[in-house]
Write a protein that binds this DNA or RNA. Sequence first.
DNA 1: TTAACCTTTCAATAATTATTGAAAGTTTTG
DNA 2: CAAAACTTTCAATAATTATTGAAAGGTTAA
Lengths: 168, 168
Amino acid sequence: MKLEEGRSKFIQAWGSLGSSWGISKSMAQIHALLLSHPDGLSTDEIMKEVQLSRGNVNTNVRELINWRLVRKETVLGERKEFFIALHDVHSIAQNIMEERKRRELEPVRRLLNELKAAKFEGNKEEIEHFQTLLSDLSDFVSQMENLTNLMTKINSNNYMKKLIKAIS
Amino acid sequence: MKLEEGRSKFIQAWGSLGSSWGISKSMAQIHALLLSHPDGLSTDEIMKEVQLSRGNVNTNVRELINWRLVRKETVLGERKEFFIALHDVHSIAQNIMEERKRRELEPVRRLLNELKAAKFEGNKEEIEHFQTLLSDLSDFVSQMENLTNLMTKINSNNYMKKLIKAIS
DNA sequence: TTAACCTTTCAATAATTATTGAAAGTTTTG
DNA sequence: CAAAACTTTCAATAATTATTGAAAGGTTAA
């Protein structure tokens, strides 16, 4: 298989997988493209390679920067900006986990805290069941947060990585 | 606050949070409703409570059953079916993780395996970079899988839960 | 200062995904 | 068997989300 063909396959497939990750196809494609080009690409190069509009590339590259998966770089003597993917897979994993925590867990936490603070009136048993539910869900959220933190630890500590694998 | 008000707030909010979890609003609302009713509800009761069409309720309840978050039950002497949520939060967490693993990780694994098996022709350095990328991403996927397994372990073992919390 | 070059914004449009509701299907009951 | 009670399906429609591209905004170079 030609390398170009492999890369292209990767980019296309990564794009469609993006949707199951809650990420837009364009964003995932651009990410895949940049991951496969160690030296970074300019907006126009990205547009050409993945066949997307300038606005789309601009938006999604900035979103990738928000996720800390891509950084902007300027080359001496060049006017335009180049975008370079973070290539270390542990950092990628960590940034994705952190962003997902922020987007998925924090809003839940906020809701649960609000409801846990309320004083309810009504049928005693029903109230109790509802409050148990809230408290259980809180535990769940905490557990997910712990797991995220644990992943950070794993990344920075190879010994711990082996420990985890061993007990898993 | 009236209990009914709290529940309703919970159901509405859970619904909008659903989208950040990659779950449709209706599915999340129905799930929240069933979580707050220990004895289960019938299709018509769900329709009434969350104001959704029969078709929508049917589809999403069945999706919740696929996720193993809800089970169907028939009551002696009643013709209709009742839907009961899984109320144990550890099992809920585990089923969600497993479903997400299946949806999010497995397709990536398939793609990576396919590409890793290919023999590429082209610039040597570029090929090497691309293959390193593939292999790194494989490691990432494995790590996520290990984390999922770890969570299962945590759930079945309270001592391990404390261990994780301690080292996190 | 102005032209060239590049980035950003955003209203319009397209694509995707969710929802409805009526019709068809299924099972139970009399 | 037919009617009643319920569930499932699915084409049509609505709602949401992604994408375009042209115009506006910046910045640098001549």
